[in-house]
Lab assay of single mutants.
Amino acid sequence: RTRTSFTAEQLYRLEMEFQRCQYVVGRERTELARQLNLSETQVKVWFQNRRTKQKK
């Protein structure tokens, strides 16, 4: 599997969503992935990694 390189715009949007809600599921995840031109899996994993980073 190749590592995803997020654009600055994608990271900004993901961070904004994370500040709003640390868990994104269902339709929200589908819509966010579509808007950012990413897969739902990429969005899901980004949120998982971001929550892990916050715990440290």
Rank of each mutant, 00 (worst) to 15 (best):
R1A: 15
R1E: 12
R1Y: 14
R1S: 12
R1L: 02
R1I: 13
T2E: 12
T2S: 11
T2H: 05
T2N: 15
T2D: 12
T2K: 08
T2F: 06
T2M: 10
R3M: 15
R3N: 15
R3L: 14
R3I: 15
R3T: 15
R3Q: 14
T4M: 14
T4D: 09
T4F: 05
T4Y: 13
T4P: 11
T4K: 11
T4V: 10
T4Q: 10
S5V: 08
S5E: 15
S5Y: 12
S5D: 15
S5F: 10
S5A: 13
S5L: 09
F6T: 03
F6H: 07
F6V: 10
F6A: 03
F6L: 12
F6D: 04
F6R: 02
T7W: 00
T7C: 06
T7H: 05
T7V: 04
T7I: 03
T7F: 01
T7E: 07
T7K: 03
T7N: 10
T7L: 02
A8T: 14
A8K: 05
A8H: 01
A8Y: 09
A8E: 12
A8S: 11
A8V: 09
E9M: 07
E9P: 02
E9N: 02
E9L: 04
E9Q: 08
E9V: 09
E9S: 05
Q10S: 02
Q10W: 00
Q10H: 05
Q10V: 11
Q10D: 03
Q10C: 08
Q10E: 05
Q10F: 00
L11S: 13
L11A: 11
L11H: 13
L11N: 15
L11K: 07
L11R: 03
L11I: 11
L11T: 09
L11V: 11
L11W: 04
L11C: 12
Y12W: 12
Y12V: 11
Y12H: 10
Y12C: 09
Y12I: 08
Y12M: 14
Y12E: 15
Y12N: 15
Y12S: 13
R13I: 14
R13Y: 06
R13H: 11
R13K: 12
R13A: 14
R13L: 11
R13M: 12
L14R: 00
L14W: 02
L14D: 01
L14E: 02
L14H: 03
L14Y: 04
E15V: 01
E15Y: 01
E15Q: 00
E15D: 05
E15S: 01
E15C: 01
M16P: 00
M16V: 11
M16R: 07
M16I: 06
M16S: 12
M16K: 06
E17V: 06
E17I: 03
E17W: 05
E17F: 12
E17A: 10
E17H: 12
F18T: 01
F18V: 01
F18G: 01
F18Y: 10
Q19E: 12
Q19S: 11
Q19D: 09
R20K: 04
R20W: 03
R20H: 12
R20T: 06
R20G: 05
R20M: 12
R20N: 15
R20C: 06
R20E: 07
R20Q: 08
C21Q: 05
C21N: 14
C21P: 07
C21D: 15
C21L: 05
C21E: 10
C21M: 04
Q22K: 10
Q22D: 11
Q22T: 09
Q22V: 06
Q22Y: 03
Q22H: 07
Y23G: 08
Y23Q: 14
Y23S: 13
V24K: 05
V24E: 05
V24C: 14
V24T: 11
V24A: 10
V24D: 05
V25I: 08
V25Q: 14
V25R: 09
V25G: 12
V25P: 06
V25E: 15
G26A: 09
G26N: 06
G26V: 03
G26Q: 07
G26C: 03
G26H: 05
G26K: 09
G26R: 06
R27C: 12
R27W: 09
R27L: 11
R27H: 07
E28T: 07
E28Y: 02
E28R: 03
E28N: 04
E28S: 06
E28G: 05
E28H: 06
E28P: 09
E28A: 06
E28K: 01
T30P: 02
T30V: 11
T30R: 04
T30C: 10
T30N: 10
E31C: 02
E31S: 05
E31V: 06
L32T: 01
L32R: 01
L32V: 03
L32S: 00
A33E: 00
A33C: 06
A33S: 10
A33T: 03
A33L: 02
A33W: 04
R34S: 11
R34N: 11
R34L: 07
R34A: 15
R34C: 05
R34P: 00
R34Q: 05
R34D: 08
Q35M: 11
Q35W: 06
Q35L: 10
Q35C: 11
Q35G: 08
Q35R: 12
Q35S: 13
L36F: 02
L36A: 03
L36K: 00
L36S: 02
L36I: 13
N37S: 07
N37M: 03
N37E: 12
N37L: 06
N37Q: 13
N37K: 10
L38M: 10
L38D: 01
L38V: 13
L38G: 01
L38I: 06
L38K: 01
S39L: 03
S39T: 08
S39D: 15
S39M: 03
S39C: 07
E40D: 10
E40N: 01
E40T: 06
E40G: 05
E40H: 00
E40Y: 02
T41N: 10
T41R: 06
T41F: 10
T41K: 05
T41Y: 08
T41L: 13
Q42R: 08
Q42L: 09
Q42M: 07
Q42A: 13
Q42W: 05
Q42S: 05
V43E: 02
V43A: 02
V43L: 09
V43R: 01
V43I: 09
V43F: 01
V43N: 02
V43Y: 03
V43T: 02
K44L: 09
K44F: 04
K44C: 11
K44Y: 07
K44H: 07
K44T: 14
V45T: 14
V45W: 13
V45I: 06
V45H: 12
V45M: 09
V45R: 09
W46C: 00
W46K: 00
W46M: 00
W46F: 05
W46I: 01
W46Q: 00
W46D: 01
W46L: 02
F47S: 01
F47V: 01
F47A: 00
F47P: 01
F47Y: 05
Q48S: 10
Q48A: 09
N49T: 14
N49V: 10
N49S: 07
N49Y: 03
N49P: 00
N49E: 15
N49H: 05
N49C: 07
R50A: 09
R50N: 04
R50V: 00
R50T: 05
R50G: 01
R51L: 10
R51D: 09
R51M: 06
R51W: 07
R51Q: 13
R51I: 13
R51N: 10
R51G: 09
T52K: 14
T52I: 05
T52G: 14
T52D: 14
T52N: 12
T52L: 09
K53Y: 15
K53I: 12
K53N: 15
Q54M: 12
Q54K: 14
Q54P: 13
K55M: 06
K55D: 15
K55V: 14
K55E: 15
K55Q: 15
K56C: 14
K56T: 14
K56I: 12
K56Y: 12
K56P: 14
